[in-house]
Amino acid sequence: MTRTLWLGLLLVALIAAPLAIYPVLLMSILCFVIFASSFNLLLGYAGLLCFGHAMFFGTAAYVAGYLLKTYGVSVEVALIAGTLLSAAMGYVVGIISVRRSGIQFAMITLAISQFVYFLLLQAEFTGGEDGMQRIPRSTLFGIFDVSDHMAFYYVTLTVAVLAVAFFYRVVHSPFGEILRAIRDNEPRVESLGFRPERYKILAMTLSAGLAGLAGALKAMVFQFATLTDVSWPISAEVILMTLLGGLGTLTGPMLGAGIVILMNDELAQFGEWALIAQGVILLLVIIFFRRGVVGELSALWRRLRPSPDQNQDRG
């Protein structure tokens, strides 16, 4: 019961938030909440470290931007197109890389994302180094005008809520169970007659699709798409968000997205220190707090609660 209450309160807070906080900042956080969840699906639940997740994010941003600019498609069409294209990319990348062990998978996905980066750099439609500017926020369903920040905030919020609900459904489905089993003991899953590769490729596809959704949304929020969106620092940022918030926890990476975006916002005026701070935090999380903020808090919570739970936890 209390959980429903909390969720309700959170939703009310999110609906009211743009009254107090600059909507673009909020929308930016929401985009990264989706992006971080998509990354969490891979690393947290399937144990796959994709070091080039920005390729899905950035490509979808370009594609959505291109469709909006050139064909004036409506918002939902741009979102769906970005999502589907990234999902297809995720499927192909999955087929190429998923057979390799965890650490090589990370290196390969990073290399492929660099490949995508150079492709987009040379492609005509992306605007090369200049990027794609003045992407219009067209109408929703061809009817509703959502071009001002307030209106678009609610579009973003709706998309984010749907995306998180989808993520929740996936990790709590039998498919999600199998992914976790593969992460924990792949040979055993294989010996039970499953084919881990297929599940990993599907996870790549879903995750890339979600990342694409986040990217397409981002293109409309900021109304531009640039090479930064496909570059490795963005891949790094989503790794930091996920680890900082709590790998494999449902809400952790979303919280991590919020923290990192706000931190970048605060540190933007201090030049390189934003990047340095990211590195230091990532290092501290890896060495001392591998469960992340949410993971550590819930561990603390369990320790403070009466003992029966504790025993269960050990068993």
Partner: peptide, 20 residues
């Protein structure tokens, strides 16, 4: 994967400091 990520974090710090 953690050592990969830890050395990566070191890159952010080293590069950031040198650039600064």
């Amino acid at each position: 994967l953690y050592s990969l990520l830890a050395t990566f974090a070191a890159v952010l710090i080293i590069e950031g400091l040198v650039r600064q």
